[in-house]
Design a protein around this nucleic acid. Structure first.
Lengths: 221, 221
DNA sequence: AACATTATGTCAGTCGCTGACAAACGACAA
DNA sequence: TTGTCGTTTGTCAGCGACTGACATAATGTT
């Protein structure tokens, strides 16, 4: 599952494992190419499998369904986010820790090392594909929810709280999710207006976080 | 689509229309019974259609897919929420307006008049079904997102803002969504601990809203 | 080299969903 | 009442996602 930790393991050793990893990667790549070229709905699983010279049955042994292959790289990125969040120094408060982890993920991405395939441009294309494909959007939102739950668990542990009794971690995790999502959308809408990708994205996220408190407090303008 | 406005229209007049509405309702009811008895995944569309003496093809003329029939009553409730939100007095600030609309929806539900089929117990069963069925959860989250967008639009209009430029309405709508969702979960987890349904639910929602500001501000405990 | 494991392919089948066409039905006017 | 017209419904045929069962081939182990 977790193909990418922070320092990628150098030699997976198993010869068999490497082969599996290669076909898995090939499937993901082929799928992305096809999805971007002709759309998610008009791409059949048979096509994907065929373009990697693998049977359809094998495809479904690697991915539970068609959505999963599309969201695979995202799943990896989310995994590294969790790792980074867990590693934040204990003296940070929850919000600081999350901001820091978000920043690190984007830095990693900027250096082109999320699952050795996550370029910044690729990520934006993927977001666009997801956003414009109802099925994918639904699946992605479900994954995000799972991610939220895990983030909340980490936060609760950092602060020594019982997540079943105190819902503030869940709440904050949910808010973080929304902020990040909205920032993605806002950035993707006009990529130029916000300067270089990583910096622009981070600035947006920071700004939205800062707007949050006042927006909750009372009326606007 | 909007089968339920606040004051339900008394006579749809058309004889044909009434028949359509009846089979639609029958499909929703049958589907719910079957889903709750034997699970969503183990219920086929053929079964649902058969139990209303209708062809499978007809089912798909009423609902675009299997998920839609499960989420139909929820969609109605969301529709009435929007109507209520639009009707809130203009002097309320966004947060007050949303709290008020949420309260009204639950009051309606408590009097048993959401799409003439939404009892409080039924609603809780439905939530449980959704929460425990990945496919349904995904579809539901997607609908919630749409709802968020519409809520944001209303909020922006109330405050005279351009939703494309100012993301605070979206942000607040997202937060509201999370709060309501978490309150549902928290209530459904132990329905007794929170007193009578509507009051307990509302109290939870209020409490979570009030925790939000402090939780954002700094560290906890 | 022989054996145990595990990945892959093939096959057949179920289920969700759609387009096309024909029959049945309700609305409306002569 | 009857005839016409638009809408709803059923039937049929077909695609594509997904699964279980079994056979076969590849790999890892002794």
């Amino acid at each position: 599952m977790a193909s990418t930790s922070i320092a990628a393991e150098p030699q997976p050793a198993g010869l068999r494992e490497r082969k599996k990893q290669r076909t898995r990667d090939a499937l993901v790549d082929a799928a992305h190419r096809l999805f971007l070229r002709q759309g998610y709905g008009k791409t059949t699983v048979d096509e994907i499998a065929a373009s990697v010279e693998v049977s359809q049955r094998t495809f479904f042994r690697y991915f539970a369904n068609k959505e999963e292959v599309a969201l695979a790289v995202l799943a990896d990125a989310e995994e590294t986010f969790l790792t980074l969040l867990r590693a934040r120094p204990a003296e940070e408060n929850p919000l600081q820790a999350m901001r820091g982890a978000v920043r690190q993920v984007w830095q990693n991405l900027d250096e082109g090392r999320v699952a050795e395939r996550g370029s910044v441009e690729g990520a934006l294309e993927l977001f666009e594909l997801i956003e414009s494909t109802p099925t994918l959007l639904a699946a992605h939102l479900r994954h995000s929810l799972q991610q939220e739950i895990e983030v909340a668990r980490i936060l609760a542990e950092r602060e020594g709280l019982d997540p079943a009794l105190d819902l503030r971690p869940r709440l904050l995790a949910a808010v973080l999710g929304s902020v990040v999502r909205l920032s993605h959308l806002s950035y993707a809408a006009e990529p130029d207006r916000h300067g270089h990708c990583m910096d622009g994205m981070l600035a947006l996220i920071e700004r939205h976080f800062d707007q949050l408190g006042p927006a909750l407090a009372g009326s606007w303008r």
